[in-house]
Each structure stands twice: as structure tokens, then as C-alpha cells.
Design a protein around this nucleic acid. Sequence first.
DNA 1: CCCTCTATATATAATGG
DNA 2: TCCATTATATATAGAGG
Lengths: 208, 208
Amino acid sequence: MGRGILSLKLIPNLKSRRTTFLKRKKSLMKKAYELSTLCDVQTCVFIASDCDPAAQFETWPPNRDQIHAMIRSYKSHSFLKQSRNSSYDLNRFLSDRRNKIVTDTAKLRHNVDKFKDHNLDSLSEHQLKDFLATLDTKIGVVDDMIQFMEADYDYLIEEVIGTPSFCPSETEESCEYNVEDFQSLLEDEFLGALVQNHPFNFDSELIA
Amino acid sequence: MGRGILSLKLIPNLKSRRTTFLKRKKSLMKKAYELSTLCDVQTCVFIASDCDPAAQFETWPPNRDQIHAMIRSYKSHSFLKQSRNSSYDLNRFLSDRRNKIVTDTAKLRHNVDKFKDHNLDSLSEHQLKDFLATLDTKIGVVDDMIQFMEADYDYLIEEVIGTPSFCPSETEESCEYNVEDFQSLLEDEFLGALVQNHPFNFDSELIA
DNA sequence: CCCTCTATATATAATGG
DNA sequence: TCCATTATATATAGAGG
């Protein structure tokens, strides 16, 4: 191109390569800007500029939040597409795990019910109180851990899928699933199962 | 451009817009391919093609794994860059939470130790056995939940940060942190704290 | 809708400062 | 190393099939 014809292989000369890289990077970004402006489509470019250690990545659009929004949008589409094709998808994964939790919880409830029928009078009040205090602390730690993980889940899920507000409603018609559906799926199947199960109220069940 | 000069605004005519979009999209992808081939740089483009409901997103490179690798690479750089600037970063977030877990666990251990000094003889063997069975089930459920969450964590963390293998070692010199450092950070500060704390061995402590 | 054609605008390789 | 120039290759807007 330009004055000489270039074959589409790695440019062997380092200097030429670098020059070409800088020129073409600039043009690619400009084209990305033009495409998105002229046609109002979400367009995103990243280039790993090894040449420039300070920048590492140059992107269009330069704003990080916009890039993240694009990534989330891409991921949610890509993920759902994959789910529909893959034989072992996230739906399956979550519902298998959920079933296990449900089964185990049922076993626990059964045992707790059995336990409630026993007479606790033979325990001294002090022993019972102490024991329950220990249990409370124990439960507290477990709750903290669960909250700890849930908070991070939210954070991680946000990173992976993003906020529902991004998905513009105008594309909903053509989109079999959207980000909101997917978030609900996760929340229903997964966090839902946790929230439902984790406040055990062990002590009140024990005392009742 | 081309035969007529176009101002850089949304093309009002829908037909022209669509035509222009298709032409420019093709060129942009071609340019991305050329850039990466000629200069051997990681280049990634996504375009949300609202026009084509089946495709939704067109990308260069078309291979999904390569796109994911690019996203992971971008995210790890972007994230670390942000961490260094932001006053409340992930390091802080993780270490605050870790401290809370450590404190709570210490409290628990203290209470368990206190409890061990008490005499359990006044509990009937049957009561004790039943109670421990209930506790076992309880712990089992909690362990399942924790494993459940850990597995998903791994999944989510993989989505967010990706595999260390992607980061080519030739750039390590110029890169203050790399993906491996970041993964270690997470594992040390966060999963580490969990793994360390979650096998409570409640029953054995109780019996010992 | 999707192609082709063609005039014109851009991009860019090579060159020289 | 980076900017300017220039000859040439590409990209593309608009028109027509």
C-alpha cells in the first residue's frame, strides 16, 4: 500500500514496523470513531501497544467505563450464545448445584425436627447458654463468610455481566435473552438458593 | 469521503447509514487484521451490529477464546492501573475483609476453648450423639455451600482475570504487575483466608 | 437487499529532513 | 526518533442494476 506494495506478513524491519504500527493504529482508532459516529453503533477497539510501556493498551472509546460496558455487553451475548449451544451450560451447572443444596437442607431440617422432640431439661442452663453462645459465634462467622462471599460475588458478577441498565431496550425484540434475564437467572438459581438457606436461625429452632 | 464529502454526524438516511455501516465495518475488520499481522500486536475489535439480529456482535479476531484472552489482558492492566490510582482499591477491600474474618475466627476459637473446659457428662449419650449428628449435617451443608461458592468463585475469577498463560513473558519487564501477581494477590488475600478458615472441624473440636 | 461502478477522499510506504 | 512530503494504494459515497 502507499508507495510500495506490502505483503500481509510481519514487517521484518523493526523501524518500519514501528512506524507502520503507529500510523495504522491512529487510523484504526479514527475509523472506529467515524463508524460509531456515522452509524450510531457500539464500536470498540483495543490495541496492545507493546511499543509504549506506559500505555499498554490503547482503546477506542478511550473512556474506561464505556469499554467496560462494551465488554459486558459482548460477554452477556457471547455467554448466552454459548449456553444455548453447549450441552453442559451454566443453567445446568447452577441447577445441579442448587439441587444438592436443597437436598442437603432438607436432610438438615429433618434432623433438626427430630432433635426438637428431645428433652433438653437434662442440660444445665449454664451449659445450654454457653453452648448456644458458641453456636452463635460459629453461625456468626459462617454468616460473615457468606456475606463476604456474596459481596464479592456481586462484585465479580458485576465484572462479568454488568449492570442491566446498559442493555438498550430497543434491541430487546431481536435478543432472545438480555442481560436482565441473565442476572435474574443467576440471582434466582444461585444467590436465591443461598439467601434462602443461609439464615439458619439455628438457635431459635433449637430453643423453640 | 468517496464521491461526496460526509460530515462526521449520524447519517440521517437509514438506507445510506446501513450501507455505509456494512462497508466500513468490513474495512475496519480488515484493517484490524492487517495491523495485527503486519506489526504482530494484539488487536481486538467488536462491533455491535444491531442491523443483524443473528450475529449481534462481530469481532476481530472472530475466535471467541482469543477475544476473551484480549479482554482478560485488558482488564488485568486496566484494573491494576486503577488500583494504583484509586484510594480504595481491591487490595484494601480484600485486606479489610480478611481482617474481619481473622478477628471473628479468633473470637470463635476463644469461645470453643472456653466450651471445651465444661463437663459434657450431664448430657445423655443419646442427646449428645443426636446433637452432634445435627451439627454434622449442619456443617455439611455449610461446607457444601462454601464449596459451591468457591467453585463459582473460581469460575468468576477466571472470567474476570483469566489464565496467567496469556500474559507473554516478553512484556514482563515493562509491566509493573502482571496477571500472575494479581492472581496470587487474590488467592493469598482472599481464597487463602477462606480455605484457611472454612474446614472448621467443629465436631472434633467439640469432642476433643 | 446486495452487487458493481466510478469519482473522489483517505491512508500509507517510502523517502528525506 | 519523530515530523513532512509525495506517489501510490485503498476506502468509500453515491448512483444504478
